[in-house]
Write a protein that binds this DNA or RNA. Structure first.
Lengths: 212, 212
DNA sequence: AAGTGTGAAAAGTTTCACAGCG
DNA sequence: CGCTGTGAAACTTTTCACACTT
């Protein structure tokens, strides 16, 4: 028995999904500038990809272009918002408001792109507040009740590496379905949960390979 | 005329290089625990990959395993340190000590993995110092002289998105060869310069696609 | 003339399966 | 026997080239 999954989603290649988010961002900028139509060549240049790849990626969403003219910015933008699951504002929680975690909270880089970080959790909430965090910081014992009470599905994980697996287990048990993990560790989660790793030291190490 | 490039480097697949860094980290941990030999199955599990892939990846470095036994932790570790360009401590600068930049400086996640952030640059150095940054923060006018004077090759870029391209142009002109870019923009650089993007909002957007 | 949509070729990556060595 | 090293197969992703539409 196949799950009654939402349309199309199954066949879009993983890497294409990343690019769709980039296109989405470019389209928003074009829309803000009053542009109504854009060609694959122009949008591809803005996104840093080849025109053919852009067209192939957009084709996963359906046929929205007009030959000889290009793509309608507004239409494409809302189709993508829907496909990417961004029609509704997603609440996000942050777990581990230490050095990095509290920095991300003050950074507000997520809010700018339309995500609302609604609460943070830490073993020591007072310390986080003292670091200048303005959103509510709760003791981590309240994690489970907050997640289920507020139907939170996304979490940003910034706890020290030795606690990461234990904490993610609790998050998953409480209903979290997507985790942005900043710990340098491969978390083990059930297959229905998605983990994205942001490993800063790894990125630097990768760079150091390419410098002569 | 081919450049007299260092051995092997040319044929290692891009994605394998990321994994080599992960293996390197796992090997260091094993070494700290006094383990002398490790099998592909064990190391693969620690790194979160399949044994066959691990063996294929390690084979890019040469033949170091002993059949029936496994790989020598110490030897492999130093081969990898060399291949990844980590024999010598690489100095790194950070440009843009605002909210995110100064947070990364206080985080010390890079130092833990053996990179030394030697200086930071900002249009307003005093503000960064006030944020509790302890390494020297210079006005950005001193970027060029510092980079060439100290042979810096790696930079972490945390300036606001509208300045990112202009700043990276200066970095490249001054001799920077690798950039860890936190701005949500595709930077244009000459092909001999490597840019790694860390786009936090993009990662969240990617997650929101996968949650039901 | 300009620009999309798409099959088919090419390139890149992962997995398999097993020969061969210690 | 256990475990590496690897050629070949399978799979995924990118690029090309051009028919087709406005």
């Amino acid at each position: 028995m196949e799950p009654p999954d939402k349309v199309a989603r199954i066949d879009i290649p993983k890497k294409a999904i990343y690019r769709l988010s980039i296109y989405h961002r470019c389209l928003q900028k074009l829309h803000d500038n009053g542009v109504e139509t854009v060609s694959s060549t122009t949008l591809a240049r803005a996104a840093g990809v080849k025109p053919a790849q852009l067209r192939k990626d957009l084709a996963y969403l359906g046929q929205f272009g007009t030959r000889g003219l290009g793509y309608p910015v507004e239409t494409l933008s809302s189709i993508m918002r829907e496909t990417l699951g961004r029609e509704h504002l997603q609440p996000v929680i942050l777990v581990g408001a230490g050095n990095l975690g509290s920095a991300l909270l003050r950074y507000h880089g997520f809010e700018k792109e339309g995500f609302e970080v609604v609460a943070a959790f830490d073993a020591n909430p007072e310390a986080a507040v003292a670091r200048g965090v303005t959103i509510p910081v709760f003791p981590d014992s309240e994690l489970e009740s907050f997640i289920s009470g507020n139907s939170v599905k996304l979490a940003i994980l910034c706890v020290p590496v030795e606690f990461a697996q234990a904490v993610v287990n609790r998050l998953v048990a409480a209903g979290i379905q997507g985790v942005l993990n900043f710990s340098p560790i491969m978390l083990e989660v059930p297959s229905e949960v998605t983990v994205n790793n942001v490993d800063l030291a790894l990125e630097l190490e990768h760079l150091s390979y390419f410098i002569r």
